[in-house]
Simulated scan of single mutants.
Amino acid sequence: MATARRSRCGVQSIMKEQEVKVLTSVKFSWTINNFSKLSRDQLYSDTFFTGPYPWRIGIYPKRSFRKLGTFVDVHLYPGPPDDVNFPVGGRYANVKLSLVNQLETKSTEVEERENVELNQGDKDNAACSLFIDLTKIHGFLVNDTCIIVAEVSVNDLGVLDHNHPRFFLDFKGLCKIEKEYAEVLEESCSKHPSLIESHRKRKRSQRFTECSFTALGKLLLFLETKKVKDMMSYDACKELQDLWEEVEIRFDDLSWLEPHVQSALTCLEKAAKVEKLKVDVADLEEKSKTLKAEAIAIDADLEKTKKELAMAEEDFDLDDELGYGIP
């Protein structure tokens, strides 16, 4: 699978040193289906971002407290526990966590906190929490579904360091994109302007557009950085397949990209074929050695038998007269 390598020096239009304000607030909704059938003690939402800051919601569906009873325990965490890129110090957030009452909106349970300091040491602690008595959850659980909403605003994000791994750039006036995806997106959109035009015509939300171009950026970066040998595993092929399926539903025309994706996805199949042929070759070589040994043994038996035949023929003349004993 041939992969074109390109020089980066020409892609500069969106990478110039300039002040770029990142998105400072977000509203994230998490719908949990089949709530009564949840088997895990704790469940987490997908990670969402306010600028470079990761967040996620955690819930204990049935948490027991001695003498108090059983509660639905909901928390908003500033950053996944394993996020090594979580920015440190000097930033504050206003947060709001809501467990939606689907029958009476006015009865929605809400917890708000202001000026929550975001520090590396605090990222495992909840920025905001809700506790609902499980016996009083009727309006919050409709058709075995509950809805949790988190709203986060980070104060005075200002300008981020361009070298920061989560530095965000304004991409074509459509959305904010992480720096690592900006270059491959810039080049692809320059060659295929329909990528931009289709999203502008659709008039999708900024969040949808951001997710679309982020997914495309991840896919393009995957294809650019991986080698054929990297695709010799099921996990790599599965990752690429998942990225492709997500991108396919977000963009209208990806005919220019599909052959490259499909070619990469066939690597595992081709590798499996190569491995099978290697096994076949090894088996045939072993069989050939066995047959050659048998042939050598047969040749030896043949030579021995020929010699015995020659000796027997010397003592046995077909032209001798039989006679009857009287001279």
Rank of each mutant, 00 (worst) to 15 (best):
Cys237Val: 13
Lys238Arg: 15
Lys238Leu: 15
Glu239Tyr: 06
Glu239Asp: 12
Glu239Trp: 05
Leu240Ile: 11
Gln241Cys: 06
Gln241Phe: 06
Asp242Trp: 02
Asp242Thr: 15
Asp242Val: 09
Leu243Thr: 06
Leu243Phe: 14
Leu243Cys: 03
Trp244Tyr: 12
Trp244Leu: 03
Glu245Trp: 01
Glu246Gly: 03
Glu246Leu: 07
Val247Tyr: 01
Val247Cys: 12
Val247Lys: 04
Glu248Gly: 04
Glu248Ser: 13
Glu248Trp: 04
Ile249Met: 11
Ile249Tyr: 11
Ile249Trp: 06
Ile249Val: 13
Arg250Phe: 01
Arg250Trp: 00
Phe251Met: 07
Phe251His: 11
Asp252Lys: 09
Asp252Ser: 09
Asp252Phe: 04
Asp252Val: 09
Asp253Glu: 15
Asp253Cys: 07
Asp253Thr: 10
Leu254Asn: 08
Ser255Thr: 14
Ser255Gln: 12
Leu257Asn: 09
Glu258Leu: 10
Glu258Val: 10
Glu258Pro: 01
Pro259His: 05
Pro259Met: 03
Pro259Glu: 03
Pro259Tyr: 04
His260Val: 04
Val261Tyr: 05
Val261Ser: 07
Val261Ala: 05
Gln262Lys: 14
Gln262Tyr: 12
Gln262Asn: 14
Ser263Asn: 12
Ser263Ile: 03
Ala264Glu: 10
Ala264Gln: 13
Leu265Ser: 06
Leu265Phe: 06
Thr266Ala: 04
Thr266His: 08
Cys267Leu: 10
Cys267Val: 15
Leu268Glu: 01
Leu268Gly: 08
Leu268His: 02
Leu268Gln: 07
Glu269Lys: 08
Glu269Gly: 06
Lys270Asn: 13
Lys270Arg: 12
Ala271His: 11
Ala272Met: 06
Lys273Gly: 03
Lys273Thr: 08
Val274Ala: 02
Val274Cys: 00
Glu275Met: 03
Glu275Ala: 14
Lys276Ala: 03
Lys276Arg: 11
Lys278Met: 01
Val279Cys: 05
Val279Met: 08
Val279Asn: 14
Val279Ala: 15
Val279Arg: 14
Asp280Ser: 05
Asp280Ala: 06
Asp280Phe: 01
